[in-house]
Design a protein around this nucleic acid. Structure first.
Length: 430
RNA sequence: GGAACGGUGGCAGAGCGGACAAAUGCACCCGCCUUGAAAGCGGGAGGCUCACAAGGCCCGGGGGUUCGAAUCCCUCCCGUUCCGCCA
């Protein structure tokens, strides 16, 4: 949620920043929000003046009662009651305007960072690094999609996954399952130097899913358990961000760095049939997420650090990759600035998005009410949040099967994963 | 799921219809005292809204009663204990 005070003090700056997202309806919402805010301040001023009057009268009623002036007290009561009617009307109006305003603000996206590249959509995302590790050409035996290799080796069984749960569910078996788990273990071990490992709940309340920005706008993308008013998390970002919701953190505690390995659930409404072969897009997948709660000053450095960490994991696996920056027209609603890491998969002949690292400025913190206090200073400020996929399993799993496919159809396991694979260095057919 | 009891400031904990932003203790900050510190003494200090002041709001959330609610009523949430169920 963007700051209403910013809307008041610098409406033009907010407008031109949001205009870079190339979504005309956002600017309309902005105008309505500004007029709601003006109206609400107008009403609250009147309401408060009346409340002050009622408070004064009530005090006097008490005093007169005490001194025995019953008649005088009763006369004041009558007056106060009449004024109270008016107060009730104004208070009602205020509540309506406030909730309309909040509803609007929850749907207005974050302002992009000034340095975020301009663009209308994903084709405008500039490559900021790479390709790294990219061979001049790929041998024919690597030009095999992972779903063929995985099925042939008996480590991918999507046919039965579909029988069990329906379309767009996947299932890994044997060394394929081990490979998926090894990737998570690898990602956790490489970040435990700085990030606290968390095992959060994967079902969360509506308030929690609203704090990170998925609700109210993107309800169709999440699985909901209506009977208990809970939602399945689409990413560990959701529970991790809300760990400190409603709390005030001492400045010297910042940044708070956390990571979690969780399943992620996405309905993928509207994307059925698109890039859904093999492991490319599924309703349920595993991911290791890294997250930081920081001061505004710490945030830019953390964005660089966290992007570097995600990159190091991919580089460590020896996969060809590149880093792109997300342009203003392609940014997620909560994002202030964002980078993606893409891995090249020769079998699909495609760059696969395997990691996304984002800075949310105070957008999520304001929704979640996460503040910090500087010792010796009055008041509190909103924190900044950042997060990124350290490693999203399915597409990395897919890229390994394609990049490490041998002429005989087996798959070599990258060296860094050997310790987590019970010594298996090569996955061959049974 | 059932029953009982709870939810008040950083923490503990009083207040249970009228001057309560809220006693007291601990912790914290500033003085005095001291070579320095502790103890002792004196003083200060919550959050939100807000340019500031004034005003308003905040005693788990929401609603109600009342001239007036931390205090009474309803409802929801959370916690503790006991029972039931269960990995």
């Amino acid at each position: 949620m963007i700051d209403v005070r910013l809307l008041r003090s610098e409406p033009d700056a907010v407008r031109s920043a949001l205009a870079r997202r190339h979504q005309p309806e956002v600017l309309e919402q902005l105008d309505r929000a500004i007029s709601f805010d003006t109206l609400s301040r107008d009403i609250v001023a009147k309401r408060d003046a009346i409340r002050a009057e009622v408070n004064d009268l009530s005090k006097e009623v008490g005093q007169r009662r005490k001194s025995g002036d019953t008649a005088g007290a009763e006369e004041l009561q009558i007056r106060s009651r009449a004024i109270g009617e008016h107060e009730r009307v104004l208070a009602g109006e205020f509540d309506v305007v406030q909730s309309d305003l909040r509803e609007l603000l929850l749907r207005i996206p974050n302002v992009p960072h000034p340095d975020a590249p301009d663009g209308a959509g994903d084709v405008d995302n500039p490559v900021v690094k790479g390709p790294v590790n990219m061979p001049a050409e790929f041998a024919e035996h690597k030009r095999v999609p992972h779903w063929e290799t995985g099925t042939a080796l008996g480590i991918l069984d999507n046919e039965r996954a579909t029988k069990i749960s329906g379309a767009m569910f996947t299932m890994q078996r044997g060394n394929g399952a081990a490979l998926a788990r090894a990737l998570c273990q690898y990602a956790l071990d490489r970040n435990v130097d700085e990030f606290e490992e968390i095992r959060p709940p994967s079902l969360v309340t509506t308030a929690t899913l609203t704090a990170t920005g998925q609700l109210p706008k993107f309800a169709d993308d999440a699985y909901s358990i209506e009977r208990d008013d809970l939602w399945c998390i689409p990413t560990a970002e959701v529970p991790l961000t809300s760990i400190y919701s409603g709390e005030v953190i001492e400045a010297e505690q910042l940044p708070l760095k956390m990571m979690a390995y969780t399943p992620c659930y996405r309905r993928e409404a509207g994307s059925a049939g698109r890039d859904t072969r093999g492991m490319l897009r599924a309703h349920e997948f595993d991911k290791v997420e890294i997250l930081a709660v920081a001061s505004p000053e710490q945030a830019p450095g953390l964005l660089v650090e966290m992007t570097g960490r995600a990159e190091a994991l991919i580089a460590g696996l020896g996969l060809p990759y590149r880093i792109i920056e997300i342009c203003t027209g392609d940014m997620g609603q909560s994002h202030h600035r964002s980078f993606d890491i893409e891995v090249y998969a020769p079998g699909c002949d495609n760059w696969l998005e395997v990691s996304s690292i984002s800075w949310f400025s105070d957008y999520q913190s304001r929704r979640a009410d996460i503040r910090y206090r500087i010792a010796g200073q009055k008041g509190t400020q909103m924190t900044h949040t950042l997060n990124g996929s350290a490693l999203a399993v399915p597409r990395v799993w897919a890229a390994i099967l394609e990049n490490y496919r041998e002429p005989d159809g087996s798959v070599t396991v990258p060296g860094v994963l050997h310790p987590y694979m019970r010594g298996v260095e090569r996955i061959s057919g049974r």
